[in-house]
Computed example of a mutant assay.
Amino acid sequence: MIGCLVVSLAVSGGVRGTGRVQLVKVVVLFAVMAGAAFLVLDRFGWNPDRLLGAAAAGSGLGDAFLGPGVQYGSGPMAVANRFGQLVTVALAVCCLPHVTMRVLGAPGGRATRTAMRWAVGQLIAISALLLVVGLGAAAVLGGPALSGADPTGSISLLLVTQALSPGGLLVSAVFSAVFLTALTTVADVTLAAAASVARDLLPRRPRPGTERVPHQDRHARWAAAAVGAVTVGLSLPAAGWNLLVLSTLAMTLAASALAPVLVYTFLWRGFTRRGLLWSVYGASALTFALLAVSPLFSGSPSAAFPGLDFHATALVNPGLVTIPAGFALGWLGSVLDRGSGAACGYADLAAAVTSDAPVR
């Protein structure tokens, strides 16, 4: 039912409709997170030292809880996983398909920069509130209780709000915020995929007698319905997977396959179509291969297939390997594809970005 609702929003609302729902989501999410952070800080007398000390004690890890990368343990592989996560998240947040779709859909360069400033400001504010709520969850409930309820930590927000506000009003608001966030995010991803299908795969010339109907818009709506149906079908067998598996896959793909394309497109005159294809397909294949043999897919209780063990590496965040590979493949493919006229396309794009002309 949720999948059908997501597809309906993508097909009927389009970019404008989902954008309005996004605005509502931001307001609800910010209000819920601010309310939860207020209750956490009030619980500890608005004293950050008390909150940090209680979180460290409740986590069961002591002072190590306040250090970076404690979830990865120690050793060289832990360092690689930690830095891989930092680099992947930093690049992926800016390059996710639904994010770039919104940014590139702005009417001009000035509007794009304004939208990015608002987006970064909201991200910083919500991340700060989430940090406070996360510390409150460890301090109020304790690490063993959180792990016992859900080893992945996905429901920590719900558990801590239920403990701080037993009446249920805040818990209901959290459910609403989580639902709106999932609804708008998946709808935007569906629209981004549908736009690619309609632009690149479907015919662009309208059939006789349909010239009055915007055929590309009609194709995009049909593509959104088809992509949404396939996505809902694929989500059913993956419903019991650890969300960390899916989020790591999405983030690594965005950082490894899309970030090199965007960077080269805007900053390198010699970037060509062959370089784009090599970067996208090569980095994507490498990402799937490394994640398939990682502990995220097998060999651990929280893996996608906990009953099997075919992992061959302890690298959980392969971004340190796949991101340089994506850039290298894009460079190599472009170097081997000289004489394609890429400089002219770069000049047109640079002129549009630095002015108020629409980015196409």
Results as ranks from 00 to 15, higher is better:
Ala343Arg: 09
Ser256Thr: 09
Leu41Ile: 05
Pro237Trp: 10
Ala229Leu: 13
Ala238Tyr: 04
Ala138Cys: 08
Pro48His: 09
Val93Ser: 12
Leu123Met: 12
Phe83Ala: 09
Leu51Ile: 07
Arg207Ser: 12
Gly121Met: 00
Tyr281Asp: 10
Gly35His: 03
Thr184Trp: 00
His215Trp: 14
Val99Leu: 04
Val178Ala: 08
Tyr264Ser: 10
Arg273Ser: 10
Leu253Met: 06
Pro151Tyr: 15
Leu131Ser: 12
Ala57Gly: 13
Met77Thr: 11
Ala314Met: 15
His219Lys: 06
Val24Ser: 15
Thr152His: 02
Leu315Cys: 05
Leu277Asn: 08
Ala347Glu: 08
Ala92His: 05
Leu29His: 00
Ala37Glu: 00
His311Trp: 06
Tyr281Lys: 05
Ser59Met: 02
Phe30Cys: 00
Ala125His: 00
Leu290Thr: 14
Gly282Lys: 05
Cys95Asp: 07
Thr322Asp: 03
Thr18Cys: 09
Arg82His: 14
Val230Glu: 02
Asp217Phe: 04
Ala238Gly: 03
Ala10Asn: 15
Thr210Asn: 14
Arg199Val: 07
Leu315Phe: 03
Gly136Trp: 01
Gly167Arg: 04
Ser172Met: 14
Gly108Asn: 01
Gly333Lys: 00
Gly333Arg: 03
Ala328Ser: 08
Ser59Lys: 01
Gly341Lys: 10
Val87Ile: 15
Pro107Met: 05
Met1Phe: 12
Val15Met: 14
Ala285Gly: 08
Ala55Lys: 03
Ser355Trp: 06
Met251Ile: 01
Ala192Lys: 01
Ala138Trp: 07
Ala37Lys: 00
Pro166Leu: 06
Pro324Arg: 02
Ala193Thr: 14
Ala314Gly: 14
Val32Phe: 05
Gly84Gln: 12
Phe44Arg: 06
Leu329Arg: 01
Pro301Phe: 11
Cys344Tyr: 10
Asp309Trp: 10
Ala352Pro: 13
Val26Lys: 00
Ser74Ile: 10
Pro318Ile: 00
Phe266His: 11
Val28Glu: 00
Pro151Asp: 09
Ser279Trp: 02
Ala285Pro: 04
Trp268Thr: 11
Arg338Ser: 15
Ser247Gly: 04
Gly339Asn: 08
Leu9Cys: 06
Gly275Leu: 02
Phe271Ala: 10
Leu286Pro: 09
Arg117Phe: 06
Met77Arg: 08
Val232Ile: 11
Ile2Leu: 08
Gln71Glu: 10
Leu9Ala: 05
Arg360Ala: 12
Ala56Phe: 01
Gly233Glu: 04
Tyr346Met: 01
Ala303Asn: 11
Gly153Ser: 11
Thr181Trp: 00
Ala292Tyr: 11
Ser176Cys: 09
Arg20Ser: 13
Leu234Arg: 15
His215Ile: 14
